[in-house]
Deep mutational scan, measured.
Amino acid sequence: MGFKLLSKLLVYLTASIMAIASPLAFSVDSSGEYPTVSEIPVGEVRLYQIADGVWSHIATQSFDGAVYPSNGLIVRDGDELLLIDTAWGAKNTAALLAEIEKQIGLPVTRAVSTHFHDDRVGGVDVLRAAGVATYASPSTRRLAEVEGNEIPTHSLEGLSSSGDAVRFGPVELFYPGAAHSTDNLIVYVPSASVLYGGCAIYELSRTSAGNVADADLAEWPTSIERIQQHYPEAQFVIPGHGLPGGLDLLKHTTNVVKAHTNRSVVE
């Protein structure tokens, strides 16, 4: 069995187990497998329904001669939608809004960016022009300005110390501490036991640490421990890039980060 097929099978099995364990909360999309990078042309966006009122959005972007996937989250909030992270750029984010209108038909009224990198804030200006209120932590807003990236308009308070959590509509926002970046936030959907790890969490097929220019490698494993301790009931975990899975993604990420750190020390 090929690795790609095995990865998709694991996603399907995880979703099936969740649907059985929580039949009222989960209505997993039966329309197909989780979209992969090879299936999404740059400039297009796919939506994948995880649970009743919960979707991931998947886009792709060219970077350094390669094409990478990027995940975000959409959560229903009454007759409105909360968006977590842009679709990595203005063109993708405009396509995301169009796809949401086509498939869901509810307005996106608020959006949260989970850290300051372009795959999370690139497209904020498109959201703002569409009347979406954009939010991020003060740290993310400051770092985005320093980096020359787009800056969300509103500040999220109460997320300055490791372990801080605040309720934001249908989700809980959690600051686990520094990891992929010093400002990275985690998003949890309690009604569906869905954990969105953003770039602080890796997919299972990833074996290298990737972009760690703004990471705190020493603190990252401790931050992941905080996530595990705060959300032990999480059933569906979405990484910032690639295929979702279960809580095993947290341990896998820790292993990859520690291996990278150990290699760096040896070198």
Rank of each mutant, 00 (worst) to 15 (best):
I104R: 08
P221R: 13
G123Q: 00
E233Y: 12
T222Q: 13
P107A: 13
Y175M: 09
L82A: 09
D164I: 11
K4L: 02
S70C: 15
V54D: 00
A98S: 09
A178P: 09
F116T: 12
K102Q: 13
A98L: 05
L185F: 13
T253M: 07
Q235T: 02
S205T: 04
A87L: 02
Q49P: 04
P232Q: 04
V112K: 01
E145F: 06
L96S: 09
I50D: 04
P107L: 06
V28M: 13
D29H: 05
C199T: 01
A130Q: 15
L106C: 04
S27F: 04
L81E: 01
I17G: 04
A213H: 06
N92K: 12
W55Y: 04
Y202F: 04
L247G: 11
I104F: 03
S62V: 13
E157D: 15
T14Y: 13
T222K: 11
A178G: 09
A213K: 11
N184E: 01
Y175S: 12
I20E: 12
T134K: 01
E145K: 15
Q61Y: 05
G65E: 11
D248Y: 03
L247A: 09
Y175N: 02
K8H: 03
H260G: 07
V256Y: 03
E203V: 02
N262I: 07
E80H: 04
R167V: 03
V42Q: 11
A179Q: 00
I186N: 12
P69S: 10
T93K: 00
D79H: 13
S22D: 13
N262Y: 06
I186Y: 02
E80A: 10
I186G: 06
L249W: 01
Y231H: 07
V146Y: 14
T109Q: 13
L10G: 10
F3P: 07
G32L: 09
L96V: 12
R226T: 04
H230G: 08
A15K: 05
S223V: 10
P138H: 04
F116I: 02
G2S: 13
G210W: 06
S191G: 07
R142M: 11
S7P: 06
A178H: 03
S264T: 11
M18G: 06
P232L: 14
N184Y: 00
P35V: 07
T134N: 06
V132T: 14
S160V: 11
V42F: 15
V189C: 05
G65N: 14
V112N: 01
V265I: 03
I227P: 01
L247R: 10
P244T: 05
T253K: 01
T114Y: 00
A15S: 14
F174I: 14
V266M: 12
S7L: 03
P244V: 12
Y188T: 11
S205N: 03
T182G: 08
S56V: 11
S139Y: 06
K258Q: 05
E203R: 03
F26L: 09
A87V: 02
Y135G: 01
P152F: 11
L97A: 03
S113L: 14
E145G: 09
Q235Y: 02
S56Y: 12
Y202R: 12
V126H: 06
I186F: 09
A213Q: 06
P152A: 11
T14W: 12
I40H: 03
C199R: 01
H241L: 01
D183S: 01
A136S: 13
G89F: 13
P69W: 05
I201A: 06
P221L: 13
L159Y: 03
V194R: 01
